[in-house]
Design a protein around this nucleic acid. Structure first.
Lengths: 87, 87
DNA sequence: TAGATATTTAGATAACTGTCTAAATATTAT
DNA sequence: ATAATATTTAGACAGTTATCTAAATATCTA
């Protein structure tokens, strides 16, 4: 995953909001959706971008899909950013 | 400046390249342009986005405009990012 | 097997973005 | 003043993106 892709995934307010929510706890798509004024298909689109950037994972549990942060990737991205800014 | 705006400014490979160059030394638009296969107007567009995001400054010195990193803003953004990822 | 619930996929559309060429502006030198 | 150099601004265009509605898929329950 390139740094550009990651920055792009992070550059949308809705996606940032999704990540902020998932920092607190894992949530289903429906639960996440209640926090934004967009339709579920639009939300699904954002979830897919975050998944493609490897920032989150979705795990089906019965009828719902539970989303969670990929903490290790988060850590890695954080390090890349610090490196980018500090060097 | 919002974090979204900053991420957006950072999400383009050309703009990342410009920042990498300016980390080394201040440069004029023309000097920067030599490192990329885009026209000067396109480059100017990217410089403007970085300026709007407050990541760089341009100072006219006679016939040329010398661009430099806004180091304090860079520092600040770096801290915001760390906070975003760590909390 | 139906029906209900949760989520995604498909397809359309308006807005945004990166790029270009041509023209404009600013400065310097003759 | 005129010409040359450096950079930006204006306007157009193709590709991408965020959004929507409608339909499809997956799971659970009766």
């Amino acid at each position: 995953m390139t740094l550009s892709k990651t920055f792009n995934a992070l550059s949308d307010p809705t996606r940032q909001g999704i990540l902020e929510l998932l920092k607190k706890k894992d949530m289903t798509a429906g639960e996440i959706g209640k926090h934004f004024n967009i339709t579920l298909p639009s939300l699904s689109h954002h979830l897919n971008i975050l998944k493609t950037a490897d920032l989150i994972s979705g795990l089906r549990q019965g009828q719902t899909i539970v989303y969670s942060l990929n903490l290790s990737v988060f850590e890695e991205v954080s390090k890349s950013l610090i490196k980018f800014f500090k060097k």
